[in-house]
Amino acid sequence: MTLAADPARDPGHDGVQPSGAILPARGLGDRVSAVFWRHPNVLLATLLALPLLWLVVVYLGSLAALLMQSFYSIDEFSGQIRREFTLSTYAELLRPANMDIIIRTVAMSAAVTLGAVVIAFPIAYFAARYARGHWKALFYLGVMLPLWSSYLVKVYAWKLILAREGIITWATDGIGASAVLNGILALPVIGGNSLSTSYIGTWLVFLYVWLPYMILPMQAALERVPQSMLEASADLGASRWQTMQTVVFPLALPGIIAGSIFTFSLTMGDYIIPQIVGSSRRFIGQAVYQLQGTAGNIPLAAAFAVIPIVIMLIYLTVARRKGAFDAL
């Protein structure tokens, strides 16, 4: 037995000392702890110093750099960035070609959000109201695993599905519906050569990848709808459909708006999906990526990147008024 492990000989716990309850300070750890105990704000500041320093310097600093770059411009002759304040880069956004990109992206984000609401609702409603026990866990995992599984793998899977020689063509041929598929592809604007080069394809992949972001907040909102309200509605003679329209849907709305924040914002900022599956017509994300890379026009890329921020700020202000933040 070592000396320190024997309580009778341990000087710190010596029973002879009558005032054992008030221990003498044993070292730096004790003294620092005492300061923290007496001044909780010092503890708070110590804990937050490192992470805040990181987030403020790296993240907010970068966002500030983005804003700064968007007010710079590119010298048309030398291709160098001219580091002087100007609004000319923002003025470039107003060119018809660039406006097209912005409008196209916002329209796609809206379409994806609408589609996600429609497909997410049955899953969220079923999981919130009817699934119990093992089924509840299954539904949770069933939504969470696709949410977390690899983004690129999911996009790649859809490239396989939508390819001209892929499973959809095979399936529609198999059931003799190839005329329907060709009819859809022949539609103006949203159609194309094959599903993987059309807006329909882009929309489907966006919908697939962001769907879990709609389901989870929607389900959270639906779980807070009290069963008694549904019963009251039925007792007052409302049909299922009427209950859905006048009770469930308005109460689920904050959750739907919370989900739409994600689907809208994520679609607006994505540049990989339209690059892999879609026509050659560009979205904001692609414009940003190409401008900062091959074109070397960082100011214009930055100005493009500011657009999603502005749109999301407006969106968030509206969502806040509708109480969507309580559903997050």
Partner: peptide, 11 residues
């Protein structure tokens, strides 16, 4: 969106 974080750091 990730592109904003990415583009900010790039800037």
């Amino acid at each position: 969106p990730g592109i904003i974080t990415g583009m900010s750091l790039r800037s």
